[in-house]
Design a protein around this nucleic acid. Structure first.
Lengths: 222, 222
DNA sequence: CGTCTCCTTGAAAGCGTTCAATTACAGTGG
DNA sequence: CCACTGTAATTGAACGCTTTCAAGGAGACG
C-alpha cells in the first residue's frame, strides 16, 4: 500500500517532490511502466529486480536512504519493490534545469554503483561475494548494529547464489567469529579485516586505495 | 602506441574532438588517472577492466564503434585498453553546455549497458552466459560475419568464467550447429532462435518484449 | 624450423545447487 | 496460554557443473 503525503506547505512549485509512505513488499513501479517519476529513499530499503519468463528473479540493486532509483527516461527497465516499510520522495522525471542537473548527478552515482556491482561479480566464490556484500551494506547504511533489511532470498538473487548457499556462508562467518548473529537479520561485524580478506576486493587502485593489512588470502579468490 | 591526428581543418573550437589511432593491446588510460577526456569509438574494440591485487583481471565492458567510454568525472575508475587496432575521438570532459548534454546521453546509455551487464550475470550456466554474449556482440557490432575481436581470455574475464569453459562451450555450440566456426575468432550464427533459447534471457517485459518462439528451455536456466 | 601465443581438449577435484528435512518465529484464533 | 499456520532460515547429503591441472594442437613470425 502506498500513502501519498502531498507537501502542501511549500506553495508547491511544479518541481516539488511528493512524499510517499510505502508498506513493505509493495511494488512501487513495474518494468515497462512509463517513467514519469524518479525516487529518492528517505527511510527504509528498496530493491529493483527483473523477472525472467521462467519465474526466476534477478535483483539489480538495493537502495538505502539518500539513494536515488528509477532514473530511466522513457520506460522503467526494472521493477522496484519495497523491502521494508519505506518513505520516498518522488520527483517528476522531466523538470526544470536545476532539478535535471541534480538528477544527472544521481545518474552518475547510479552508474558508478552499477559498475561496483559488476565488479562484485568478479568475486567468484560464495564466501567472496557474501563478505563483500556485508561490507557494502555496512558502508552504505552506515548503521551501528547492521540490521539487514532484506531476506536471504533477496541477498541470494542479488549475488547470484541460492538462499541455501547464502545462509550456509553467513553461518560459516559466524562460526569463524568474523561476524556475530542476533537473529537472522541482525549482523554485527566482529573482524572487519578478516572479512575484507575473505572478500578479497582490494583492486590495485593507484590513488584512492583502501589499504589492507593482509597480504595473503586464506580464502581462494579465484 | 597512440598516434594523434589533430583535426586542424575545422577551425578547432575549444570542444573539438581529437582523433586518435591506437594500436591493439595499448593502454588508453589507467585506473586512477585524472579523467580529462572521454572517448568515442570510431573503429575497433576497446575493453575496460580492473586488476585485483592478486593479479586477477576483471573486465567491466566492451566498447564497439559509436560506443562511449571513460565518462568518469574526477578520476577513471577502471583501465581502458584496445582489444584491436582502434580509432577514437577524444573529447574534453568539461566542455560547453551542448557537449555536456551529449555526454549525459552517453552516460544514460552507459548506465543502461551496465544494467544489462548485471542482468547478464543472472544467467547462471556457462552456456547461458556465452550464448547471451554471442548474441550481444552480434547485435552491438551488427557485423555480418561476426568477427570476434577479443580473445577467449577476454570473454572469460567478462563473463566470470575460465577461458577453458568458454572454449568448451563455444565448441559445444559449434557441435550442436548453433554456430559455425572458421577459426577461433570468426563465428557465424547458424540457429539464432536456438541460441536465444540457450541464453534464456527472455525476461517478462510487458511492453517492449522481444518475443520468442520457444516456450520450453532445453538447457537449464537456473 | 623453432618459438611464441592462443585455443582446444581430457580427467579429476572442488564448490554451489538441488532435493529434502528440520528448526525458529511471528501472527492468529481457540 | 497454547496449539495452529505460514513464512523464513538453517542444515545435511548427493549430484552436476565449473575449475583446476595437464597436455596437445594450430597459426603467426622470425
Amino acid at each position: 500500500m502506498i500513502t501519498l503525503c502531498t507537501s502542501n506547505n511549500c506553495e508547491s512549485t511544479q518541481t516539488a517532490p511528493t512524499i510517499l509512505m510505502v508498506e513493505r513488499g509493495t511494488t512501487i513501479y513495474s518494468e515497462g511502466d512509463t517513467a514519469n517519476f524518479w525516487y529518492e529513499v528517505s527511510a527504509g530499503t528498496v530493491r529493483t529486480c527483473r523477472y525472467l519468463a521462467n519465474g526466476q528473479r534477478h535483483l539489480t540493486g538495493f537502495y538505502y536512504p539518500e539513494d536515488a532509483f528509477g532514473l530511466d527516461l522513457e520506460v522503467y527497465r526494472e521493477t522496484a519493490e519495497s523491502v521494508s516499510d519505506v518513505v520516498l520522495s518522488r520527483h517528476p522525471t522531466r523538470a526544470d534545469r536545476d532539478i535535471a542537473h541534480a538528477r544527472d548527478g544521481m545518474l552518475e552515482k547510479a552508474w558508478e554503483q552499477a559498475r561496483e556491482r559488476i565488479f562484485l561479480f568478479g568475486h567468484k566464490t560464495a564466501a567472496n561475494r557474501v563478505a563483500a556484500f556485508i561490507l557494502e551494506v555496512g558502508e552504505r547504511t552506515h548503521a551501528s548494529g547492521l540490521e539487514l533489511p532484506m531476506s536471504r532470498s533477496d541477498i541470494a538473487d542479488y549475488l547470484n547464489l541460492t538462499l541455501h548457499t547464502v545462509s550456509r556462508t553467513i553461518s560459516d562467518f559466524a562460526r569463524k567469529d568474523l561476524i556475530s548473529l542476533n537473529g537472522p537479520q541482525n549482523i554485527r561485524i566482529v573482524d572487519i579485516d578478516g572479512l575484507r580478506a575473505v572478500a578479497g576486493d582490494q583492486h590495485e587502485a593507484p590513488n584512492y586505495s583502501y589499504a589492507s593489512s593482509h597480504t595473503d588470502f586464506p580464502w581462494p579468490t579465484v
